[in-house]
Simulated assay, not measured.
Amino acid sequence: MNNPIGNLNKLFDSRIRLGVMSVLMVNEEVSFNDLKQLLEVTDGNLASHLNTLEENGFLKVHKGFVGRKTNTTYSITKAGEKAFKSHLAALEHMIKFMQ
Rank of each mutant, 00 (worst) to 15 (best):
T42A: 13
E81W: 05
L24D: 00
K78E: 15
A79H: 07
V41Y: 01
Y74D: 00
T42K: 09
V41S: 08
T52C: 14
R68C: 08
L24Q: 03
I76S: 01
L46M: 05
S22Y: 08
Q37I: 13
N71V: 10
E55S: 14
L35G: 03
R68T: 14
L38Y: 11
L59E: 02
N33L: 00
S31L: 00
N27P: 02
G80V: 03
L59I: 14
F65T: 15
E54V: 07
T73D: 06
D34I: 01
K63D: 14
K78S: 15
T72Y: 06
L46F: 02
L35P: 04
G44P: 06
V26D: 12
G67A: 04
E28W: 07
H49L: 03
E81D: 15
D43A: 07
T42S: 14
G67N: 04
L24R: 01
K82H: 12
S31Y: 06
N45C: 09
N56L: 06
T52K: 06
F32V: 07
G67T: 07
S22W: 02
L39N: 03
E29L: 09
G80P: 02
K60R: 13
F58E: 02
K63V: 13
K36W: 01
T77I: 09
K78L: 10
G44H: 04
L39F: 06
M21T: 08
M21K: 03
H62Y: 09
F58A: 07
H62S: 12
A79I: 10
N33P: 05
L38S: 14
L59Q: 06
R68L: 11
L50N: 01
T73L: 02
V23F: 09
D34A: 08
T77N: 02
L38C: 09
L53W: 06
M25D: 05
T52S: 11
N45F: 09
T52P: 05
L35V: 01
R68K: 13
V30F: 03
L35K: 01
T77E: 03
N45S: 14
K69L: 10
H62E: 07
H49Q: 12
V23I: 14
S48F: 12
T52A: 15
T42G: 14
N51R: 13
T73S: 11
V41W: 00
K82F: 12
K36F: 08
V26E: 14
E28G: 14
V26W: 03
H49N: 12
E81C: 11
K82D: 15
N71A: 14
I76W: 01
A47H: 12
N33Q: 13
K82G: 10
N45Y: 11
T77W: 04
H62K: 15
E28L: 03
L39G: 06
V26R: 07
V66M: 08
E81S: 15
G67R: 04
V41E: 05
